[in-house]
Design a binder for these strands. Structure first.
Lengths: 191, 191
DNA sequence: ACGTCTGTTCAAGAAAATTTGAACAAACTG
DNA sequence: CAGTTTGTTCAAATTTTCTTGAACAGACGT
């Protein structure tokens, strides 16, 4: 089988002819993923798997991307954790095989659900805490300072409203429903 | 004026009572911004300005957040560059004053337009390049390898289609139009 | 024109992250 | 059960990113 031809320890040259193209795409996806807050390698590994018709082993992956086995193990583990890669099994084979979850849309939703929503919720909480904190100190302040604190309070309300609108939008995305970004706009117009 | 009372070199204690709340909110926004690929400090600085009824000077900012003047200069400069903060001017005063652009919606759009769109376009290009590269090598390959390369080619087409759908969605967001995330879904269904 | 006040840039230092090799553990083979 | 093979974890080392203080440059007032 032709993929077996790729397995050679000779550093250069012994690569299949399509390796260059493969790495180029993997790198582009790596950039996207990195920008999106994941490890570069996660994008790279996922892409290699996504472009491969057959499931691959960690050894093949580390050879393709020139990564140490620990690096592969770490990032691949994280990909599995996110459901972006599945472990598969082959009768007779001892090593694990991995294949990419190929529905990008499904992956996007999962990440938004697990990660972005949490992030927004934390921000919402923090804004609420800040407001409560202001409420507590308000009584100890003079007239001038109260005006100041009231101003901050109003602004924090706006940040909260915005964050909540954001949360709703992300929820809709996760549900695969249509969304209207202008909701964010209106969230800051009630002054 | 009460904000003047904050100006004291005494490290602790001399802070206005609302400082705690202010920093809490600033930090939450810092996290959001960091997650979104900006410097932590950008979010913090913007928030302090957003919560202040009056424009502020770099000195006040560095005192509030306990930052060196160079750190303030750097991140504030970037905020100005992104249009998130405006330099204002006060007759008689020598220092520059800064105030937050308070339309978050406007800011979001600008960032998506300038940054995310570029990122996606680069990825689209890279996938295209990879495909072209495959086309060039195809003739030198045997039957088995051609099948392999054809598979990769098809997958790259799907990644391209997805990226292009993403680009369209972001464009719509920037235009403030309704969007249907399910477009991404359908982008990978034509097999 | 001089001295002072502001803001920016830069190189050095500090902090944070990624990466690796080696040690460990677990599963399988004969 | 001893010896492999495979996968994970960990601390050390490397790389990258942030932060800072000092040097620099520009603007202003006198």
């Amino acid at each position: 089988m032709s993929t077996a031809a790729a397995k050679q320890q000779d550093p250069n040259d012994s690569q299949p002819l399509w390796r260059e193209a493969e790495l180029r795409a993997a790198d582009a996806m790596g950039r996207l993923m990195e920008f999106w807050g994941f490890r570069r390698h996660m994008g790279r590994l996922w892409t290699i798997l996504y472009l491969s018709p057959e499931p691959m082993t960690t050894t093949e992956l580390s050879e393709t991307l020139q990564l140490s086995s620990s690096a592969v193990s770490l990032s691949l583990g994280e990909l599995v954790h996110w459901g972006a890669v599945r472990k598969t099994w082959r009768p007779g084979e001892r090593k694990d095989f991995y294949q990419a979850e190929s529905s990008v849309w499904k992956l996007l939703r999962r990440v938004y659900e697990r990660r972005e929503l949490n992030l927004i919720r934390e921000a919402i909480d923090a804004f609420g805490d800040a407001q409560r904190h202001l409420d507590e100190t308000r009584s100890q302040l003079g007239r001038e300072d109260r005006r100041r604190v009231d101003y901050m309070h109003k602004r924090l309300s706006r940040l909260s409203a915005l964050s909540k609108a954001g949360e709703r939008l992300v929820r809709l995305v996760v549900a695969g429903r249509m969304i209207n970004p202008a909701d964010l706009q209106s969230a800051e117009e009630e002054d």
